[in-house]
């Protein structure tokens, strides 16, 4: 049902004059009322994609449809339905909170309920007590809330957020995510770019992971972790080196699955296509051939989102991926 899609992107490519392949053949759809997480390390193409989705960039090739409309024929129609919350504090520091909201609300004279829209944004983002405060004097968290409130003041159907929680405390972050969750339940479509994987996991139904302009994953969070396989872990009562010395066929089998051993532990990542039951059966069978070995514990679990993301981006982005995981863990704390 094409009418049910908020965003349809087909084979989208974009080349900057001095940087080719900023986006290469990117395709995805987003159903109305859903939240899409846009992931990727710096320079992956997230901002370029947002600029294409907001009509600031004209794609080199491919097709973008927002709410079933295209920029070349219905630019004003599309823009009247979306709002952008940029990464920076995209408001006027020398205006008060209320003046900022009123200014951005006045830019849409075609919309009714001017005062209601302003008050609603103040309420939703809990800025009522800061109405007369100059934006420059707000704390970091309140500035982020004002940034979001400006995005909401014209009641968009589609809200695009570019790292809206960067650099703020966990309480403010939680408040913003709470607002976004509530907007989503009311039917607003969200596109959310972030480095905070935990936020994306909490908020988003769909994911698009970009790497050097290309889509490396598209689907749900569950599909991402499933697609990247499972983590296997087991512990025996003695060192594996002793076992593999006596039984070289076991060493060969472990090597075949790229499993690592250390003392009594064996662990590794099983590919997505692995038949887990057959693998576990075969592992236990190997151990049964050694009566002196006692299996103390073993487990097979889907990868965490962080690990899946790390795996997805591969070794070339190891450092960055680890950095992202670290950020994500910090946010849990």
């Amino acid at each position: 049902m094409p009418d049910s899609y908020a965003i349809e992107v087909q084979a989208l490519s974009y080349d900057y004059p001095r940087k080719r392949d900023a986006l290469v053949d990117v395709s995805f759809d987003l159903v109305k009322g859903q939240a899409l997480g846009l992931l990727g390390v710096n320079g992956a193409g997230k901002s370029t994609l947002i600029q294409c989705l907001t009509g600031q960039l004209r794609p080199t090739s491919g097709d973008v449809a927002i709410m079933g409309q295209r920029f070349d024929t219905s630019r004003q129609g599309i823009l009247s339905q979306l709002a952008l919350v940029p990464q920076g504090e995209a408001f006027y520091p020398r205006l008060t909170v209320s003046e900022n909201l009123r200014f951005f609300a006045r830019l849409r004279p075609d919309l009714p309920d001017f005062n209601e829209r302003v008050n609603e944004s103040l309420d939703v983002c809990q800025l009522n007590n800061q109405q007369t405060v100059l934006a420059a004097r707000l704390s970091g968290g309140l500035k982020r809330r004002l940034n979001l409130a400006i995005g909401l003041v014209n009641r968009p159907s589609l809200l695009l957020l570019d790292e809206p929680t960067v650099g703020i405390d966990p309480i403010s972050k939680d408040a913003i995510l709470g607002v976004l969750e509530s907007l989503k339940t009311k039917g607003m479509t969200l596109v959310y770019t972030s480095h905070q994987l935990a936020e994306v996991e909490r908020l988003c139904d769909q994911l698009v992971v970009l790497d050097r302009g290309k889509t490396v994953f598209q689907g749900t969070v569950a599909a991402l972790t499933k697609a990247q396989g499972h983590r296997f872990e087991a512990r025996i009562n003695q060192a594996w080196s002793k076992v593999t010395r006596k039984r070289p066929e076991i060493a060969k089998w472990l090597q075949q699955w790229s499993l690592q051993t250390q003392d009594g532990w064996v662990q590794g990542q099983l590919p997505a296509e692995c038949d887990l039951a057959a693998f576990t059966g075969r592992f236990l069978q190997q151990l049964q051939a050694c009566p002196e070995v006692i299996l103390q514990q073993h487990s097979v679990q889907p990868l965490s989102m962080e690990a899946a993301f790390f795996e997805l981006l591969g070794e070339s982005h190891t450092a960055l991926a680890q950095c992202l995981i670290h950020e994500s863990e910090s946010s849990h704390v």
Partner: peptide, 20 residues
């Protein structure tokens, strides 16, 4: 003073997404 803040903070990009 105004324009540089608008450019660096993304306000101008935000204004470009308004339907005019």
């Amino acid at each position: 003073a105004t324009l540089l803040i608008e450019i660096s903070q993304g306000t101008l990009a935000r204004l470009h997404t308004y339907p005019f």
